[in-house]
Design a protein around this nucleic acid. Sequence first.
DNA 1: CCATAATATAAGTATATACACATATTAACT
DNA 2: AGTTAATATGTGTATATACTTATATTATGG
Lengths: 155, 155
Amino acid sequence: MVSGKSDQELKELSLRTGNACVGFNLRRTTRLLQRLYDEAFEPLGLKGTQFSLLMAVAGNKGATIGELAQPLGMERSTLSRNITVMQKKGLVIVEEGKDRRQQKISITGQGLSVLQDALSLWERVQERLIRELGEERIKNLLADLQSLSQWIKET
Amino acid sequence: MVSGKSDQELKELSLRTGNACVGFNLRRTTRLLQRLYDEAFEPLGLKGTQFSLLMAVAGNKGATIGELAQPLGMERSTLSRNITVMQKKGLVIVEEGKDRRQQKISITGQGLSVLQDALSLWERVQERLIRELGEERIKNLLADLQSLSQWIKET
DNA sequence: CCATAATATAAGTATATACACATATTAACT
DNA sequence: AGTTAATATGTGTATATACTTATATTATGG
């Protein structure tokens, strides 16, 4: 029973649950880390999310919204809106396919140029993270995150 | 140089960077996992984020926005808006403190009742995660996330 | 070939998030 | 005490996110 607990007992329950909850810890760390990336890419007027998306577009020339959304683990409607932002910035271009329902996304010349600069900023962040946590823990962390993603997709 | 690369080379670079990027992997897993929690809490009209916030409020009776934001690793302005949502749902109550700049947040009776039900739904998700990844990996994952959060806060 | 089903995307609505700035209140210094 | 500093929160603006619903296009079954 939650409602019968004293303030002190609630405090302990709250701490215990917060420490154990994978969702809470993932969200909190993601929030905090996102700020590091955003700071790093700020000179390019880019957010961390946009860097990832630009990289995904670059590596999947002419892919549709649906094809991109899959590996990103993102709703197509979300991706659609994110692509619009990138398009306004001139980083990607959207073209109709033969199947006129589909929108084929590609990176622009300007997008490639920004990506080039962003990549070296990304490397600096990556190196800081490796220096801080160590290569082994980063590797394990990435593997765990990927296992988790894979499992959820299959569920 | 990014701009001189072939489509195939860009594809490889994109895959390699995506696999190595802590930010991307954290965001993707968080997105996917969030849906599991949202499904679980859906019968209560609650989101995963709101469960975490409700639990934090319950464990810190009368805390201010600023005091809550700190351990949540959240901007105070963000928390302020999230609290408004919870207030509209009748789950928390906001009162002026002696220092009238401050807003003291507490959980309501209805909030406690919802929290009670939410807690058992949360436990089911937690058990599924432990069954899937194993207790050891979950423990390591949580420890890594907490180290990372701690470091970023100190940076 | 036409009606219907399936598919791809966008738009409506709501929450989560952060930064910059505005506002109100308290503290601190002279 | 009065002016200025610092502090706590809320608002404006923009992006990220997802669910539901609408729209347009293609495929399918008769």
